[in-house]
Design a binder for these strands. Structure first.
Lengths: 163, 163
DNA sequence: GTCCATGCAAACCTTTTGCACTATA
DNA sequence: TATAGTGCAAAAGGTTTGCATGGAC
């Protein structure tokens, strides 16, 4: 048994708690996700597994990610790209959001405790019991702005009824 | 030409500005979206069109929704259900977010100007130029809580490494 | 030895696209 | 009449599932 990350050990414990087998595939997938600081897509995970001489079916990757998300060791994201991304859950500070560049797809994380306060106030007002939230801000990252990228505005010339 | 909503008239103007034909299908689809206060899925839009004796292909619905979104008269949402939802854009107050019930799927809108401030502060700090943002809070709505629904917690028994 | 996981391919679901035909302006 | 839209069905792309085989405990 090789040297693994703390999160990886927690995942082993999770599997044992749930009486599920600790397989090589599950270990390899967990190690890929836990050893990256990025928001990985399934395709990226598959590629990294392959370059590590692992040949693991897509179905197994999806099934294992499901376990990782359930265990709360991994967080699932959907940035509207048409597929999901997965991120190591325990490196995350409790409150965080994402700045997403519409040009290059870059994702910048940020912390904001103020959102927690807003969330508490809003949910209390509506008698809603919150479990999680997400704050995503879309726009242009600094490098893309400096590269002169402009986002198209195809909207109405003037949103006032003139006719 | 029948009596239509202000937004519908704006959509006609948008089409003219873009030199695109104002077709019966586009009018019918726009009317369905503009006459509803809900977040409609494509399937729901299709159903409403059918009950109004319109037989319009799914492809046309998607193509028209694309125009409506571009014109900014309609807003697209993805609540992680595996498909998108569309909402009348002009009834929206400038700043709004969603409370999404994980049990029944109900969506409650809320206003929060404080998020704007947070957004301005964060984006400035990162040199990011924002266009739009979304704040979504997931959890249990009041009716579901009163019905005694509990959300399962399949996570680790304790996220502290004990082994 | 039992139970569950894996791999493959097929199925699924939403969304997009190609193309012959029709409607708008 | 030119130009663009529509409908249908097929394709696309990500994700899920069924099933025979193989691995964990």
């Amino acid at each position: 048994m090789v040297e693994v990350s703390p999160s990886h050990r927690l995942f082993r414990r999770y599997l044992k708690e749930q009486r599920l087998p600790v397989t090589h595939q599950r270990e390899a997938i967990a190690e890929v996700v836990f050893s990256s600081a990025e928001h990985l897509s399934v395709e990226e995970i598959e590629r990294r597994l392959r370059s590590g001489r692992n040949r693991i079916g897509k179905a197994t990757i999806y099934r294992t990610l499901d376990l990782l998300v359930r265990s709360r060791l991994v967080v699932e994201h959907d940035f509207g790209e048409g597929f999901k991304r997965y991120e190591h859950g325990l490196t995350q500070e409790p409150v965080h959001g994402h700045l997403i560049c519409l040009e290059c797809g870059r994702v910048i994380e940020f912390q904001s405790w103020e959102v927690q306060e807003v969330k508490a106030r809003i949910t209390q007002k509506h008698g809603f019991r919150p479990t999680r939230h997400k704050l995503e801000i879309y726009g242009l990252c600094q490098p893309c702005q400096e590269a002169g990228v402009e986002l198209p505005d195809d909207g109405l010339s003037c949103p006032i009824e003139t006719v």
